[in-house]
Design a protein around this nucleic acid. Sequence first.
DNA 1: ATGAAGGTTCCAGTCAGGGGAGGGTCAAGG
DNA 2: CCTTGACCCTCCCCTGACTGGAACCTTCAT
Lengths: 133, 133
Amino acid sequence: MNIGDVSSRSGLPAKTIRYYEDIGLIKPLRSANGYRSFVAADLHRLAFLGRARALGFTIEDCRTLMALYRDESRASADVKHLAQEHLSKIEGKIRDLQTMHDTLSELVKCCAGDDRPDCPILRDLSGISAALS
Amino acid sequence: MNIGDVSSRSGLPAKTIRYYEDIGLIKPLRSANGYRSFVAADLHRLAFLGRARALGFTIEDCRTLMALYRDESRASADVKHLAQEHLSKIEGKIRDLQTMHDTLSELVKCCAGDDRPDCPILRDLSGISAALS
DNA sequence: ATGAAGGTTCCAGTCAGGGGAGGGTCAAGG
DNA sequence: CCTTGACCCTCCCCTGACTGGAACCTTCAT
């Protein structure tokens, strides 16, 4: 299989697949003409990577996860621990975004949004302490 | 005021302040010795930037917001529109993260997390269609 | 023989800064 | 007068996870 086939089957851009080879996540063979030659195992690894990335794991996490996957004597606790760490990072990001969202949507709600210049969003950004309302 | 004072007053790292000058967001004067010399207006702009960044606006958004702030004849609709676009990007990110969170926490819940190798997280990543449970 | 559609490598750019080298400046103390 | 330490300066490389593009090679169909 050439990279184009693998790309359409895995859903990953060819650029991404080359990048994954660059950083050592996959090691496809080469044909005589220099083209990468993928076998089923490569496709499987790429699909694994695609799913792990879709869950937001970093590349380094993916490397660890693949190592655990190949290690038949792994402890599921190790996998679970990694996933939980990642989960709490996700939760942190959601909290941060939610805070931004709440503040900003409040400001947006207060803004008339017409052709007059007065704007509570800019007022807030400029640091008027928005006091005593 | 030197950059150190401005840094501690604005809460922004000196590196960030220099970077903001680099990309043209502020233009502090220089003393004879080459040091940046900040006046109150610079501090105000930096505080504005800090708050806008804390709300997740990109640097380019900040540039636009500052231009709107300085334009006395702006329409609040323009500000509101920018804020709403940003808000919907935030909402998209929250949705994405929430989806990851839900999937991953379900997998984590199903993982024994002991010293045995069997692990539903890895099983899912490896593409077992997880069917008929 | 030619043209299109694939493949290859390598370089540069993204975003918003962070880290550190190598060096100049300033105020206080000995 | 000299030194010490705390500032400040510029410059360059690094981050993550790719993406875009240039310049070039291979394969296949016409």
